[in-house]
Amino acid sequence: MTHDNDINYRRIEQAIRYLEEHFKRQPELSQVADEVSVSPFHFQRLFTEWAGISPKRFLQFLTIDFLKARLQESRNLIEAAEAAGLSSQSRVYDLFTTLEAVTPQEYKQHGTGIQIEYGFHETPFGLCLLGVTARGICWMSFLQADEDVTQALHAMKEHWHNSVFHQDQELTKAFIGQIFPAKDRSQQKKLHVFVKGTNFQIKVWEALLRIPEGHVTTYQQIASSISNPQALQAVGSAVGSNHIAYLIPCHRVIRKDGVLGEYRWEPTRKKSILGWEMARQGL
């Protein structure tokens, strides 16, 4: 399954990699366009339509110095929210996504009796698989470069392996329209996710939801926020096992030295999402 939008996103990824690799010599637009096999005019338009800013400006968001400064800003924001108490915390964060977990009994039964509608859709970050239940979005994964739809579907079915699956492109398309609205984001509807995980994983995922768009945090900050500051490895594992990409924003967790680090759906995609979010925040 190959789509024009997915091909365009792969070009953007390729351009980001090239710009990073040749950052010191500041390649010209024509050189980047040549690398992704399109004309300079077409590449400039393609990238600016996607990010809202130029490729060079976009890359500034991904430098270690910028990300370190962003970490401090995020820490200050989160600490201020926590100091103000829970009632104002929700106003500070204005949580876009709310979370519900399976019950202990459902966890033991591995999803038995749960009906999941799914579909494959274009997003600003390439093709994704979306799974939806009556209780919320239960799966979102981006297809990787060497992955086909069968493999992506298998991963979802492994996670919810006793559930009943049915493809419904129209239903899931409506959710994609809510996740990535074409126009005014201020009118964006709140979304509800439905997760299956251990109590510890759920605490970590809830902490991820409190990281505002365009901000980043560290594994240490997440561990401290769930009152378990020594559990860095367990936090890293929980972040990596998140099964709802983008909405539970594990892409906003980076290393304390400002390095972005790994990402379940490819490291370059993590850079793409973070830079795209920061551009939308008008930084």
Rank of each mutant, 00 (worst) to 15 (best):
N162H: 14
I7T: 11
G275C: 01
H192M: 13
V193A: 00
R25K: 15
V239C: 06
V36G: 05
E147R: 07
I222P: 01
W50I: 07
S54T: 04
K189S: 10
R75F: 04
G214C: 09
A83V: 15
I64G: 09
L208T: 03
R252G: 00
Q167S: 06
T123Y: 11
G240P: 04
E122P: 07
K190N: 11
G177D: 14
I222V: 04
S141F: 11
A51V: 03
F23V: 15
Q221W: 10
P124N: 05
K270Q: 01
G85K: 05
W139E: 00
H42L: 12
G85W: 15
I114K: 00
S30I: 15
P249K: 06
Q44F: 09
V164W: 10
P40W: 03
I226S: 03
Q221H: 14
Q60I: 06
N162T: 05
L77E: 04
H42E: 15
A84V: 00
S37W: 14
Q89C: 13
T217Y: 05
A51R: 01
S225W: 05
K196T: 06
A80S: 13
M140W: 00
L19M: 11
T2M: 13
D257R: 12
E79K: 10
D168V: 01
M1N: 12
R280H: 09
P212H: 08
P104S: 03
E28S: 07
Q201E: 07
R45A: 10
F61T: 05
L208G: 00
I53G: 01
I12E: 06
E79P: 08
V92H: 13
A15D: 04
G177H: 03
I114E: 00
I179V: 08
N242P: 02
V259R: 15
S163E: 02
G282A: 12
P55L: 04
A15K: 06
G214T: 03
A152L: 01
Q187C: 02
F120H: 02
V92C: 14
R210Q: 11
I222W: 01
S225P: 06
R264L: 13
V216D: 00
E35S: 12
V92F: 14
P40A: 06
G197V: 01
E49N: 14
A80G: 05
M156R: 07
A51T: 06
L130P: 00
A279G: 09
V132Q: 09
K157W: 09
D65W: 12
A182L: 15
Q151H: 10
S37F: 10
R255Y: 13
A231N: 12
A152E: 00
S241F: 14
R252L: 06
E117F: 08
L283P: 05
D4V: 13
C138M: 07
L95Q: 15
T123F: 08
Q151E: 02
Q44I: 14
F194D: 06
Q188S: 09
T112Q: 15
D184Y: 07
L171Y: 13
Q72C: 05
Q31W: 10
E79S: 14
T2E: 12
R280K: 14
S163N: 01
Q220L: 13
W160I: 05
R135C: 06
G214Y: 03
D148P: 10
V216Q: 01
F23Y: 13
F180V: 07
I254C: 01
L129D: 01
L95S: 08
L62K: 05
S87T: 13
